[in-house]
């Protein structure tokens, strides 16, 4: 892949039709995961949509949006009230598999500040059982703030993990791992298009996919990603059989 082909910066950046990554990021497909290097630290993107950081044995998930359905039900749209347990069950399976020392929720753990109070008894107990199994950090999100802290764990505006900066909203800084944007990759082939959640990664920063069962996605080609990944990003798409790295030029806009 050519490096730095035409990257003379222009001021009112037009929506790039074909973006080139500045440097080819280091990616390795290891079993079902894709391993990537950021600030000298190896990260493993898991097909379940979580990030595993071996150094520190940290499991990172973003945008759980627990109690999203009940938030909508209050407004009159009766979405299935099973999203919290669906999300927690997937999280529990990951914790069983990886036995992390620390779990980091990268913000928007609840869909709104009232979420923890609305939780059903069964779901609350399930979450508290998980909280007991690792150190737990709630990075604060724009949806819920510190609300999750009432259930256990600690809430932090951001978190430094070795050389990495973990926060909810991406700033575009290097060595940053964030959530908030819910990246989604769209590709076309065989007469059909497929849209799938993905990690967005350009070698210098990463945005995690939303983990919540009912959280929608934002296309990686949307302009909201431009300030974060000025030169485009690889999509590490969540395939059923493993994470699939897709080059920026294969990605379609909505």
């Amino acid at each position: 892949m050519p490096l730095l082909a035409r990257s003379t910066p222009k001021k009112p950046a037009p929506k790039p039709a074909l973006t080139l990554v500045r440097a080819e990021p280091v990616l390795a497909i290891v079993d079902r995961n894709v391993e990537a290097r950021l600030a000298g630290t190896m990260l493993a993107a898991l097909p379940e949509g979580a990030l595993w950081i071996e150094r520190g044995r940290a499991l990172v998930v973003a945008d759980l949006h627990l109690e999203k359905s009940s938030s909508f039900a209050r407004g009159g749209q009766m979405l299935p009230p099973y999203d919290t347990r669906a999300t927690l069950a997937r999280l529990a399976a990951l914790i069983d598999e990886h036995e992390p020392d620390i779990v980091v929720s990268l913000g928007d753990a609840f869909h709104d500040g009232g979420g923890p109070a609305r939780m059903g008894e069964e779901d609350r107990e399930a979450l508290q059982a998980l909280l007991a199994r690792a150190d737990w950090v709630w990075v604060e999100g724009n949806h819920e703030g510190k609300a999750a802290e009432t259930l256990g764990g600690v809430a932090r505006a951001s978190l430094k993990l070795g050389t990495l900066d973990l926060r909810h909203e991406p700033t575009g800084a290097t060595n940053e791992i964030a959530g908030h944007l819910h990246p989604c990759a769209k590709v076309f082939g065989r007469g059909l298009s497929v849209r799938r959640r993905c990690f967005a990664y350009d070698g210098e920063r990463m945005v995690l996919p939303a983990f919540g069962a009912l959280t929608g996605g934002l296309n990686l080609r949307d302009r909201a990603f431009a300030p974060v990944f000025p030169n485009g990003a690889f999509a590490l798409a969540l395939g059923k059989n493993g994470v699939l790295p897709i080059a920026p030029e294969r990605l379609l806009a909505d």
Partner: peptide, 24 residues
């Protein structure tokens, strides 16, 4: 002439990812 019915989502995604796998 027609898109083949049953072309699985996974296959489409894998096609898209293949380029990289080959390159690497």
């Amino acid at each position: 002439r027609v898109p083949i019915q049953g072309a699985a989502e996974e296959a489409i995604l894998e096609d898209a990812a293949n380029l990289i796998a080959e390159a690497m």
